[in-house]
Design a protein around this nucleic acid. Sequence first.
DNA 1: TTGACTACCTAAATTATTTAGGCTACTTTT
DNA 2: AAAAGTAGCCTAAATAATTTAGGTAGTCAA
Lengths: 160, 160
Amino acid sequence: MSHLLDETDIAILNHLQENGRAQRNTIAELVNLSVPSVSERMKKLEERGLIEGYKAILNSKKFHFDITAFIFVQVDGSENYQNFVEKASAEEEILECHSITGDGSHFLKVRTKNTGSFESLLSRIQAWEGVSKTRSNLVLSSFKETRAIPVEHATELIKS
Amino acid sequence: MSHLLDETDIAILNHLQENGRAQRNTIAELVNLSVPSVSERMKKLEERGLIEGYKAILNSKKFHFDITAFIFVQVDGSENYQNFVEKASAEEEILECHSITGDGSHFLKVRTKNTGSFESLLSRIQAWEGVSKTRSNLVLSSFKETRAIPVEHATELIKS
DNA sequence: TTGACTACCTAAATTATTTAGGCTACTTTT
DNA sequence: AAAAGTAGCCTAAATAATTTAGGTAGTCAA
């Protein structure tokens, strides 16, 4: 079995997690490879699906999206789950939708402009088929918010 | 007051949220502008801080990070908050750390390789100064997970 | 109306990326 | 064990992307 990551791949992935528009010559210098070699490695990491894509990260404060909140939702009747998930996917203010263990059947992370828009989102959700209960926690401040994966911990994928 | 976004800016931002490595000529075609004009707009959006940065998004499943969970933490004594936040920031498996309203004082989103590493992270957290109680919810499946901002809703920033 | 400013354009210069071709070290097949 | 194939690297050339330079038109204020 080939397809294992070496230190160079890890360095490339970590650099791209930080700077998704990094140029190949910058990375080449960082990892002591030629530019075409870096290109080839990046292409493979993309083709293997290890890199899902690249995204610009916008500053939500500057866009006046001031409320971040988490909402536990109790959806009764698993026949309503599909509908719930579809509705949640269509709401732009809902960033995440998970099915979870413990209290509530679903869990949402939402971002709205203000308490008013939060309130109206919440009442929209409460009107969805099967939704019997919600519990919200508003975010006062955030100290860390990332999606970076500590690649070097993926021991199964790492060579030698 | 200038500094307002027009439709072109919105289209550029939305495209970059989807494809963070999009090339300027592709965008130029999309918005019917010349390449240098697109470059100039992108530079301004970056300089204004509306675009915080660009990130490669890695596929956590392919890296065998199989557990996603949310943890409410009760930290007693606000003199312990600072320490808590610092410790949380240093843990690579902790993706998010928020201070929240409602039950618990802090809220974490974590991603670990398996239940074993989750358990050990949890007991590490429980040993931090002031942590008196935790409650965890494991994610069974995720239907949506994004950070995209619906730029067109930022009415304060939009021209005409 | 002039001057300053903004946002755009084209064309040229520069830089980045890909392609082509070849080398070496392994691994697999015969 | 030798031959053939493969993976990964390199340099140099070709191509493509980006920036720079210089200019035009429109807007607003003095």
